[in-house]
Design a protein around this nucleic acid. Sequence first.
DNA 1: CGGCGTTTTGAGAGAGCTCAACATCGGTGG
DNA 2: CCACCGATGTTGAGCTCTCTCAAAACGCCG
Lengths: 199, 199
Amino acid sequence: MSAEHWLPAHVRAAGIERTLKAGQSLFRMGDVPPGLFEVMKGKVRLVRMDASGRETVLYTAAPGSMVSEASLFAPAYHCNALASTAAVVRLYPKALLLAEFERDQRVGQAFMRMLAREIMNLRTRLELFNIHSARARVRHYLALHAGADGRTVILSGSVKDLASELGLSHEALYRTLAAMQRGGEIVRQKNRITFRPSV
Amino acid sequence: MSAEHWLPAHVRAAGIERTLKAGQSLFRMGDVPPGLFEVMKGKVRLVRMDASGRETVLYTAAPGSMVSEASLFAPAYHCNALASTAAVVRLYPKALLLAEFERDQRVGQAFMRMLAREIMNLRTRLELFNIHSARARVRHYLALHAGADGRTVILSGSVKDLASELGLSHEALYRTLAAMQRGGEIVRQKNRITFRPSV
DNA sequence: CGGCGTTTTGAGAGAGCTCAACATCGGTGG
DNA sequence: CCACCGATGTTGAGCTCTCTCAAAACGCCG
């Protein structure tokens, strides 16, 4: 959900900035969505809690990414947004955006494209979560997040964060990474993983 | 993704119908999307295959539902569509739709709303797949698909179909349903499940 | 009636989860 | 400068739960 400058300057300028401390809540399930948030600094994650208190990470927004696109048309949020790190977000009010969509067709269409891309991301994630083997999940993730060379992934957070993004316990992930390294499938540096694609 | 008559009559009239036999493919990953499909009769499922041949059901479209909304802006399909039963679909060509979005703001906005709803559905599904216990998954599904009375779910296919929609092996699902019935949590009739919500 | 797919139950094994202990690292304050 | 402390990183061991392979009853349709 990258902004990629599809939003006209005058709308961006009208954004209302807000600063969040690590762990602070941006919005909660049930709140009325005021508009669209763009993450300027830090990271914000969308999560849901199930009955047992388990947290499902629905999405992690990095600088340039949007949050709550889907809720722009909904009467209430259906998940919680929490700052994973200290963060700055910018709010674009709903009415302003809808007016802009009407004024300039291209903006509205860019927004559709963004929604469509998010749908595809979510489907890919769904596929990931349907994989039971931890090793296969890691492979799937690595293949999908490889950099330009096709065999390097930069971790943007702790391994623990990665674990919750993969829907694995952090212990299982540590073990899997260790085993893959022993087997020569991956090499780990500070916050970088190099791997052999499609062995 | 229900159509709900948001599409103007003259666009609907321009749709191209196509008949599919059970198991027949509507489109495959990599194909160029010609437009939007509406399911008129039967059921069509979106699936992806992972490396091991396991099939992940991304979405099941019933009559009135749209397929390939997200791919309207993509150069190629990112998943496969298969007829689960004998089915009839109607194709709305991409160019026609985009022109209509420009002509009438409300149609474009209705489409955005549809995309947004699909995002929320997918997030709910993601949450479902993050639940490991079969029983909790079934509870989650039942709570979400309860009818007006809040405690009855009509199964629209076989239990086996339900199993793949829940991401469970069919054996696990049968066992779980049997156990829940023994425990008095649910009552099963022909193709209907009645349950006690939030016990 | 025969065949095929769904439904059901059994048994075993593998894999991830949980609880637990310990190492490591960075930041804080004395 | 060093001790402390909390969070991350790492490894161990046992347990539970689903998956897989198997087999049999059931129901529907030609």
